[in-house]
Design a protein around this nucleic acid. Structure first.
Lengths: 118, 118
DNA sequence: GACAGATATCGACGTTTGTCGATACGCTTC
DNA sequence: GAAGCGTATCGACAAACGTCGATATCTGTC
């Protein structure tokens, strides 16, 4: 199986807590790439808009909300899809995007350490 | 109170779930900045090393582990401190760093949506 | 107070990234 | 199949970033 072809958040080693032992260079790279997807204000806003909608959201609705050009919005959407956080769905000429809430959950899991808390 | 002078993860509006309404441009910027701190493999490795240690860790221990130059490691540590994820402690000539586990928890909270799950 | 060692800051460099205009692609309709 | 529309890709550019060598700063020691 070609892991590199999958969205980051679908790979097997992507979502282990940050306090696990034996973190390889590749693991660190994968984890960093996931958070890099969320490291731009425009992409945070996209996730926010999708998180608040129970239905898939059209690009034609995202573009004016972000006040960015259409190619730039498309660029950010691709980054989020590549990271595994969003799903794309074609409806006629329109493209609709959905937030993968489970993927977001798994990303949160990376930040939840296993150690006993006081 | 000058919020800008505080570590990101200590500001009041930093850690609200990503599905809340009324996300401003500034909120998106703050949230993105937090994840940007975790968007580099070297910094992920630093957090991993600190998460696995119950004691503060010396820079002199981090530098060889990261296989990066001392100025570069210092640079990454500063980024993580500025984000509010790490604390710095001076012990003689040595600098020790500690992971702020509560800050990491709050960062995880951003990714945990409040909506009812199916 | 001069010295030695650990860490932070500075300056410079190449790479990556966000942004946009222009253009290509895919779908629907006539 | 031609035209129109929504979206993705391409090419270019400026800004941001990671990296390192050189240097400054701070601390403890003699």
């Amino acid at each position: 199986m070609n892991v590199d072809a999958l969205p980051l958040l679908a790979t097997s080693s992507c979502c282990q807590p940050l306090d696990r032992a034996g973190l390889t260079d590749k693991d660190a790279e994968t984890t960093a790439a996931i958070f890099k997807a969320l490291s731009e204000p425009a992409r945070v806003t996209i996730v926010n808009l999708l998180a608040r909608s129970p239905e898939p959201v059209c690009v034609c609705e995202l573009t004016p909300a972000l006040r960015l050009s259409q190619p730039t919005v498309s660029h950010h959407l691709k980054k989020l899809v590549d990271a595994g956080l969003l799903h794309r769905e074609q409806r006629g000429v329109w493209a609709f995007y959905t937030l993968d809430r489970e993927a977001l959950d798994r990303a949160a899991g990376i930040l939840q350490l296993e150690g006993v808390r006081t």
